[in-house]
Amino acid sequence: DTWRFGLEETEGSVQYEYAQAFKQLIEKKSDGDITVQILPYGVWGSSYSTLYDAIQNGSIPLSFGSGFLGGTVPESQLMSLNYVMPNDQLEATEILNSDAFMKSDAWQQSFRTRGLVPLAALPEGYQVWTANKAIHTPADMQGLQIRVMDNSLLRATYQAYGASPITIAYGELYSALQQGQAEGNIQPVWAHENMGFYEVQDYMIFAEQSQFIANLIANEDWYDGLSDDQRQLLDTTIHEMVKKGDEIQKQLNQDRLKTIEEKSDIKIIHLDQAQRDEFRKLAKPIRDDFVNLVGERGGKALDILLEQEKARGDKSDGDSQSS
Protein backbone atom coordinates (compact mmCIF):
# COMPACT_ATOMS: atom_id res chain seq x y z
CA ASP A 1 0.00 0.00 0.00
CA THR A 2 0.98 3.62 -0.46
CA TRP A 3 0.04 6.02 2.30
CA ARG A 4 0.06 9.59 0.97
CA PHE A 5 0.93 12.11 3.63
CA GLY A 6 0.16 15.79 2.96
CA LEU A 7 2.07 18.58 4.70
CA GLU A 8 1.19 22.25 5.12
CA GLU A 9 4.88 23.07 5.14
CA THR A 10 7.87 22.65 2.84
CA GLU A 11 11.02 20.55 3.22
CA GLY A 12 13.09 21.28 6.31
CA SER A 13 10.05 22.16 8.44
CA VAL A 14 8.83 20.55 11.67
CA GLN A 15 6.04 18.77 9.79
CA TYR A 16 8.54 17.51 7.21
CA GLU A 17 10.99 16.16 9.79
CA TYR A 18 8.12 14.50 11.62
CA ALA A 19 6.83 12.94 8.38
CA GLN A 20 10.32 11.64 7.54
CA ALA A 21 10.67 9.93 10.93
CA PHE A 22 7.11 8.60 10.64
CA LYS A 23 7.85 7.23 7.17
CA GLN A 24 10.96 5.42 8.37
CA LEU A 25 9.15 3.79 11.27
CA ILE A 26 6.12 2.70 9.22
CA GLU A 27 8.15 1.34 6.34
CA LYS A 28 10.49 -0.54 8.64
CA LYS A 29 7.76 -2.00 10.83
CA SER A 30 5.63 -3.06 7.88
CA ASP A 31 8.61 -4.74 6.20
CA GLY A 32 8.08 -2.60 3.15
CA ASP A 33 4.40 -3.56 2.70
CA ILE A 34 3.52 0.06 3.20
CA THR A 35 5.23 2.97 1.47
CA VAL A 36 4.70 6.46 2.83
CA GLN A 37 4.68 9.15 0.14
CA ILE A 38 5.33 12.59 1.60
CA LEU A 39 3.64 15.49 -0.21
CA PRO A 40 4.98 18.82 1.05
CA TYR A 41 3.33 22.21 0.51
CA GLY A 42 3.32 23.14 -3.15
CA VAL A 43 3.14 19.58 -4.45
CA TRP A 44 -0.58 19.21 -3.76
CA GLY A 45 -1.26 22.89 -4.36
CA SER A 46 -0.76 26.17 -2.59
CA SER A 47 -4.05 26.92 -0.87
CA TYR A 48 -4.75 25.04 2.36
CA SER A 49 -8.40 24.45 1.53
CA THR A 50 -7.18 22.40 -1.45
CA LEU A 51 -5.29 20.12 0.93
CA TYR A 52 -8.31 19.78 3.21
CA ASP A 53 -10.44 18.97 0.15
CA ALA A 54 -7.97 16.25 -0.75
CA ILE A 55 -8.15 14.74 2.73
CA GLN A 56 -11.92 14.94 2.82
CA ASN A 57 -12.33 13.38 -0.63
CA GLY A 58 -9.74 10.73 0.16
CA SER A 59 -7.09 11.47 -2.45
CA ILE A 60 -4.66 12.28 0.38
CA PRO A 61 -5.66 10.09 3.33
CA LEU A 62 -3.17 11.39 5.90
CA SER A 63 -2.23 14.99 6.56
CA PHE A 64 -1.53 17.83 8.93
CA GLY A 65 -4.07 20.58 9.52
CA SER A 66 -3.19 23.55 11.72
CA GLY A 67 -4.58 27.03 12.28
CA PHE A 68 -6.09 27.12 8.80
CA LEU A 69 -8.40 24.20 9.61
CA GLY A 70 -10.90 26.47 11.39
CA GLY A 71 -13.36 26.72 8.51
CA THR A 72 -13.29 22.96 7.99
CA VAL A 73 -13.35 21.85 11.65
CA PRO A 74 -14.44 24.89 13.70
CA GLU A 75 -13.64 23.16 17.01
CA SER A 76 -9.99 22.92 15.95
CA GLN A 77 -9.69 26.63 16.74
CA LEU A 78 -9.34 25.44 20.32
CA MET A 79 -5.67 25.12 19.42
CA SER A 80 -5.28 28.82 18.76
CA LEU A 81 -6.91 29.99 22.01
CA ASN A 82 -4.42 31.85 24.19
CA TYR A 83 -3.37 30.63 27.63
CA VAL A 84 -5.27 27.36 27.74
CA MET A 85 -2.25 25.00 27.58
CA PRO A 86 0.50 24.38 30.12
CA ASN A 87 3.62 26.50 29.65
CA ASP A 88 5.86 23.50 29.42
CA GLN A 89 5.92 22.44 25.79
CA LEU A 90 6.43 18.73 26.40
CA GLU A 91 3.65 18.68 28.96
CA ALA A 92 1.29 20.38 26.51
CA THR A 93 2.23 17.79 23.90
CA GLU A 94 1.52 14.94 26.27
CA ILE A 95 -1.83 16.30 27.37
CA LEU A 96 -2.98 16.91 23.80
CA ASN A 97 -1.98 13.39 22.83
CA SER A 98 -3.43 11.73 25.92
CA ASP A 99 -6.27 9.29 25.29
CA ALA A 100 -8.42 11.36 27.64
CA PHE A 101 -8.29 14.29 25.23
CA MET A 102 -7.42 12.88 21.79
CA LYS A 103 -9.82 9.91 22.05
CA SER A 104 -12.55 11.91 23.77
CA ASP A 105 -15.93 11.87 22.10
CA ALA A 106 -15.97 15.64 21.87
CA TRP A 107 -12.65 15.86 19.98
CA GLN A 108 -13.19 12.76 17.81
CA GLN A 109 -16.72 13.74 16.79
CA SER A 110 -15.65 17.29 15.97
CA PHE A 111 -13.56 15.83 13.18
CA ARG A 112 -15.61 12.75 12.32
CA THR A 113 -18.72 14.76 11.48
CA ARG A 114 -16.54 16.32 8.76
CA GLY A 115 -15.26 13.01 7.42
CA LEU A 116 -11.96 13.26 9.29
CA VAL A 117 -10.28 11.52 12.22
CA PRO A 118 -7.84 13.30 14.55
CA LEU A 119 -4.85 11.03 15.22
CA ALA A 120 -2.37 13.23 17.05
CA ALA A 121 -1.31 16.79 17.80
CA LEU A 122 2.12 18.08 16.84
CA PRO A 123 3.04 21.30 18.67
CA GLU A 124 5.56 23.21 16.57
CA GLY A 125 6.72 25.66 19.20
CA TYR A 126 5.48 28.85 20.81
CA GLN A 127 3.72 31.49 18.75
CA VAL A 128 6.16 34.34 19.25
CA TRP A 129 5.37 38.02 18.88
CA THR A 130 7.63 40.46 17.12
CA ALA A 131 7.32 44.23 17.07
CA ASN A 132 9.38 47.37 16.65
CA LYS A 133 8.87 48.25 20.29
CA ALA A 134 9.33 46.31 23.49
CA ILE A 135 6.20 44.62 24.82
CA HIS A 136 5.98 43.64 28.48
CA THR A 137 2.39 44.44 29.36
CA PRO A 138 -0.93 44.89 27.59
CA ALA A 139 -0.34 48.65 27.87
CA ASP A 140 2.65 48.26 25.54
CA MET A 141 0.34 46.64 23.00
CA GLN A 142 -2.20 49.49 22.91
CA GLY A 143 -3.09 50.30 19.31
CA LEU A 144 -0.30 48.13 17.91
CA GLN A 145 -1.12 47.13 14.33
CA ILE A 146 -0.21 43.50 14.79
CA ARG A 147 -0.80 41.14 11.89
CA VAL A 148 -3.16 38.24 12.56
CA MET A 149 -4.75 35.75 10.22
CA ASP A 150 -8.20 36.81 8.99
CA ASN A 151 -9.86 34.82 11.77
CA SER A 152 -12.53 36.12 14.11
CA LEU A 153 -11.22 34.51 17.33
CA LEU A 154 -7.62 35.65 16.83
CA ARG A 155 -8.84 39.12 16.01
CA ALA A 156 -10.93 39.14 19.20
CA THR A 157 -7.99 37.89 21.26
CA TYR A 158 -5.65 40.66 20.17
CA GLN A 159 -8.37 43.26 20.45
CA ALA A 160 -8.79 42.10 24.04
CA TYR A 161 -5.08 42.78 24.59
CA GLY A 162 -5.68 46.31 23.29
CA ALA A 163 -3.95 45.86 19.94
CA SER A 164 -5.39 46.86 16.55
CA PRO A 165 -5.08 43.59 14.68
CA ILE A 166 -4.52 44.01 10.96
CA THR A 167 -4.99 41.41 8.24
CA ILE A 168 -2.22 41.02 5.67
CA ALA A 169 -1.73 38.22 3.15
CA TYR A 170 1.23 36.01 4.08
CA GLY A 171 2.89 36.84 0.78
CA GLU A 172 2.68 40.57 1.43
CA LEU A 173 3.70 40.34 5.07
CA TYR A 174 7.44 40.94 4.69
CA SER A 175 6.86 44.13 2.71
CA ALA A 176 4.18 45.26 5.13
CA LEU A 177 6.50 44.83 8.13
CA GLN A 178 9.35 46.50 6.29
CA GLN A 179 7.32 49.52 5.24
CA GLY A 180 5.57 49.75 8.58
CA GLN A 181 2.05 48.99 7.44
CA ALA A 182 2.08 46.20 10.02
CA GLU A 183 3.87 46.95 13.30
CA GLY A 184 3.92 43.47 14.75
CA ASN A 185 3.68 39.83 13.79
CA ILE A 186 2.86 36.46 15.34
CA GLN A 187 4.63 33.31 14.13
CA PRO A 188 6.50 30.33 15.49
CA VAL A 189 10.26 30.95 15.64
CA TRP A 190 11.00 28.84 12.57
CA ALA A 191 8.61 30.90 10.46
CA HIS A 192 10.13 34.20 11.64
CA GLU A 193 13.46 32.81 10.47
CA ASN A 194 12.28 31.08 7.32
CA MET A 195 10.50 34.12 5.94
CA GLY A 196 13.10 36.62 7.14
CA PHE A 197 10.48 38.55 9.13
CA TYR A 198 13.01 39.10 11.94
CA GLU A 199 15.13 41.19 9.55
CA VAL A 200 12.51 43.93 9.66
CA GLN A 201 11.51 43.75 13.34
CA ASP A 202 13.36 44.93 16.47
CA TYR A 203 11.92 42.87 19.32
CA MET A 204 10.96 39.26 19.70
CA ILE A 205 8.63 38.56 22.62
CA PHE A 206 8.03 35.14 24.17
CA ALA A 207 4.69 35.44 25.97
CA GLU A 208 4.05 31.67 25.88
CA GLN A 209 0.41 32.40 25.11
CA SER A 210 0.00 29.52 22.70
CA GLN A 211 1.88 27.09 20.55
CA PHE A 212 1.55 26.59 16.82
CA ILE A 213 -0.18 23.23 16.77
CA ALA A 214 -0.65 20.97 13.77
CA ASN A 215 -3.27 18.24 13.98
CA LEU A 216 -2.40 14.94 12.36
CA ILE A 217 -5.64 13.94 10.66
CA ALA A 218 -6.83 11.07 8.48
CA ASN A 219 -9.70 10.58 6.07
CA GLU A 220 -12.43 8.85 8.06
CA ASP A 221 -13.30 6.18 5.47
CA TRP A 222 -9.65 5.39 4.91
CA TYR A 223 -8.90 5.09 8.62
CA ASP A 224 -11.94 2.97 9.39
CA GLY A 225 -11.15 0.82 6.35
CA LEU A 226 -7.64 -0.08 7.50
CA SER A 227 -7.07 -3.68 8.52
CA ASP A 228 -6.70 -4.20 12.28
CA ASP A 229 -2.99 -4.80 11.84
CA GLN A 230 -2.50 -1.66 9.86
CA ARG A 231 -4.52 0.48 12.25
CA GLN A 232 -2.55 -0.86 15.17
CA LEU A 233 0.69 -0.18 13.32
CA LEU A 234 -0.46 3.39 12.69
CA ASP A 235 -1.64 3.97 16.27
CA THR A 236 1.48 2.61 17.94
CA THR A 237 3.76 4.53 15.59
CA ILE A 238 1.94 7.75 16.31
CA HIS A 239 2.24 7.04 20.00
CA GLU A 240 6.00 6.56 19.66
CA MET A 241 6.22 9.79 17.70
CA VAL A 242 4.83 12.00 20.49
CA LYS A 243 8.14 12.46 22.23
CA LYS A 244 10.06 12.45 18.97
CA GLY A 245 7.86 15.25 17.66
CA ASP A 246 8.64 17.36 20.71
CA GLU A 247 12.39 16.78 20.19
CA ILE A 248 12.19 17.67 16.49
CA GLN A 249 10.31 20.86 17.27
CA LYS A 250 12.65 21.99 20.04
CA GLN A 251 15.78 21.26 18.04
CA LEU A 252 14.55 23.05 14.94
CA ASN A 253 13.31 26.13 16.79
CA GLN A 254 16.52 26.30 18.82
CA ASP A 255 18.61 26.21 15.63
CA ARG A 256 16.46 28.84 13.96
CA LEU A 257 16.57 31.12 16.99
CA LYS A 258 20.35 30.85 16.96
CA THR A 259 20.38 31.87 13.28
CA ILE A 260 18.16 34.84 14.05
CA GLU A 261 20.43 35.93 16.89
CA GLU A 262 23.53 35.57 14.73
CA LYS A 263 22.15 37.38 11.72
CA SER A 264 20.42 40.27 13.47
CA ASP A 265 20.53 42.29 16.67
CA ILE A 266 16.88 41.66 17.43
CA LYS A 267 16.23 41.91 21.18
CA ILE A 268 14.59 38.94 22.83
CA ILE A 269 12.14 39.39 25.68
CA HIS A 270 10.71 36.65 27.90
CA LEU A 271 7.64 37.70 29.84
CA ASP A 272 7.68 36.65 33.49
CA GLN A 273 4.75 35.05 35.21
CA ALA A 274 3.21 38.27 36.50
CA GLN A 275 3.39 39.82 33.05
CA ARG A 276 1.89 36.73 31.45
CA ASP A 277 -0.94 36.79 33.98
CA GLU A 278 -1.97 40.24 32.80
CA PHE A 279 -2.43 38.93 29.28
CA ARG A 280 -3.99 35.72 30.56
CA LYS A 281 -6.71 37.68 32.34
CA LEU A 282 -7.59 39.53 29.16
CA ALA A 283 -7.60 36.38 27.05
CA LYS A 284 -9.89 34.41 29.30
CA PRO A 285 -13.25 35.81 28.06
CA ILE A 286 -12.32 34.68 24.53
CA ARG A 287 -12.95 31.12 25.72
CA ASP A 288 -16.64 32.01 25.85
CA ASP A 289 -16.46 33.53 22.39
CA PHE A 290 -14.99 30.24 21.24
CA VAL A 291 -17.83 28.19 22.72
CA ASN A 292 -20.43 30.59 21.33
CA LEU A 293 -18.85 30.33 17.93
CA VAL A 294 -18.27 26.57 17.59
CA GLY A 295 -20.87 25.16 19.97
CA GLU A 296 -21.02 22.95 23.05
CA ARG A 297 -18.90 20.14 21.62
CA GLY A 298 -15.97 22.51 21.37
CA GLY A 299 -16.65 23.70 24.90
CA LYS A 300 -16.55 20.10 26.07
CA ALA A 301 -13.18 19.55 24.40
CA LEU A 302 -11.85 22.70 26.08
CA ASP A 303 -13.09 21.51 29.47
CA ILE A 304 -11.38 18.14 29.02
CA LEU A 305 -8.15 19.89 28.15
CA LEU A 306 -8.30 22.11 31.23
CA GLU A 307 -9.24 19.16 33.48
CA GLN A 308 -6.26 17.19 32.24
CA GLU A 309 -4.00 20.08 33.16
CA LYS A 310 -5.43 20.23 36.65
CA ALA A 311 -5.22 16.46 37.09
CA ARG A 312 -1.51 16.59 36.32
CA GLY A 313 -0.88 18.91 39.23
CA ASP A 314 -0.17 21.60 36.72
CA LYS A 315 3.39 22.82 36.73
CA SER A 316 2.25 25.79 34.72
CA ASP A 317 1.22 29.18 36.03
CA GLY A 318 -2.34 28.51 34.86
CA ASP A 319 -5.66 29.09 36.56
CA SER A 320 -4.86 26.70 39.40
CA GLN A 321 -1.71 28.44 40.57
CA SER A 322 1.00 26.32 42.09
CA SER A 323 4.67 26.98 41.35
Binding site: S49, Y52, Q56, N57, F68, G70, G71, T72, P74, R114, G115, M149, D150, N151, S152, R155, T167, L293
Partner: peptide
Protein backbone atom coordinates in the same frame (compact mmCIF):
# COMPACT_ATOMS: atom_id res chain seq x y z
CA UNK B 1 -22.85 19.48 -2.59
CA UNK B 2 -19.83 18.00 -0.82
CA UNK B 3 -18.91 21.39 0.65
CA UNK B 4 -22.48 21.83 1.79
CA UNK B 5 -22.40 18.46 3.54
CA UNK B 6 -19.00 19.13 5.11
CA UNK B 7 -20.20 22.54 6.24
CA UNK B 8 -17.02 24.39 5.45
CA UNK B 9 -17.16 28.11 6.23
CA UNK B 10 -14.84 31.07 5.84
CA UNK B 11 -12.56 31.99 8.71
CA UNK B 12 -13.49 35.60 9.41
CA UNK B 13 -17.19 35.92 8.61
CA UNK B 14 -18.15 32.22 8.73
CA UNK B 15 -19.87 32.35 5.34
CA UNK B 16 -20.70 28.86 4.02
CA UNK B 17 -18.49 28.32 0.98
Amino acid sequence: VALHDRGRTSAALHIPF
